[in-house]
């Protein structure tokens, strides 16, 4: 995973395996984007595995963005990620664009 910045928007392409072991790396990317006051565009098309730890981080990043009047969007969310959000009861709390 890496952060690509363009026009005040950070694009992060999520790793296929969003397990707890990548949570720290994911968090670091979001913190970096937050430090730079960037809008966030998350490309989640390749996610094949999800975990609560990573979903918490994504959710927190979204909240932090919205609070700071920045935009946060998840694009091309894979079925795995959508199902994970639904299973944890988070689906209604987040907007995803396919």
């Amino acid at each position: 995973m890496k952060l690509e910045v363009s026009d005040q928007t950070a694009t992060i392409e999520l790793a296929p395996s969003l397990d707890i072991f990548v949570a720290e790396e994911l968090l670091a990317l979001f913190v970096d984007a937050d430090n730079k006051s960037l809008d966030l565009n998350i490309n989640a098309g390749g996610v094949e595995k999800a975990s609560t730890a990573c979903l918490q981080i994504i959710h927190s990043a979204a909240v932090s963005c919205i609070e700071a009047d920045r935009t946060f969007q998840i694009t091309e969310a894979s079925d795995v990620l959508v199902t994970a959000f639904k299973d944890l009861g988070l689906y209604s709390k987040i907007t995803m664009r396919s």
Binding site: E24, L26, L27, Q56
Partner: peptide
């Protein structure tokens, strides 16, 4: 917030 969250 994202600045205070602990990953695990």
């Amino acid at each position: 917030s994202i600045q205070k969250i602990i990953s695990d």
